[in-house]
């Protein structure tokens, strides 16, 4: 679910173009989730601010149920993520895992690594010029 939620919506649509026949248990609904932090990073929780979230739940004809909660306001993204989640409860699971989830996970990892590489290039290497006499 996390991989589907964090996938770029357009990329998910490319990888999973067809929507399987399904009944809607909860139509895509956009709302807000309050994001919390902790005082000092580790202490008591506090409310930082909200983020937009869209959720959706579907049921396939075979009875498999899928849920999605995705960041943002893209209803097609939420529907597609819920469908992929429901397909993961069926015989199609290995195919979805290989053709959708693993591809998305690899792309997310590559994007993260690329950004970490740029950050690493700005890491400071200190060298001592003159140490004060003591």
């Amino acid at each position: 679910m996390a991989i589907l939620a964090k996938a770029p919506p357009a990329r998910l649509a490319e990888l999973l173009p067809d929507l399987a026949a399904h009944a809607v248990l909860r139509a895509p609904e956009t709302g807000a989730v309050m994001v919390r932090g902790r005082t000092g990073g580790t202490g008591a929780p506090f409310n930082l601010g909200e983020m937009t979230v869209t959720r959706c739940s579907v049921r396939l004809d075979c009875g498999a149920v899928g849920h999605a909660w995705v960041q943002g306001r893209d209803k097609a993204h939420a529907t597609r993520a819920a469908l992929a989640d429901s397909l993961m409860q069926t015989d199609a699971a290995p195919r979805i895992r290989a053709m959708v989830l693993e591809v998305l996970a690899a792309e997310a990892k590559a994007a993260r690594t690329a950004r970490a590489g740029k950050a690493a290039a700005t890491r400071v290497d200190f060298f001592t010029l003159v140490r004060g006499e003591d």
Binding site: E29, T30, V33, M34, R36, G37, E50, V53, R112, A116
Partner: peptide, 17 residues
């Protein structure tokens, strides 16, 4: 917007900096 819930407190120690 309907309030759908609240997050777990974010773990800033695990931030991708």
């Amino acid at each position: 917007l309907p309030r759908l819930g609240a997050s777990q407190p974010v773990d800033t120690a695990a931030m991708a900096v």
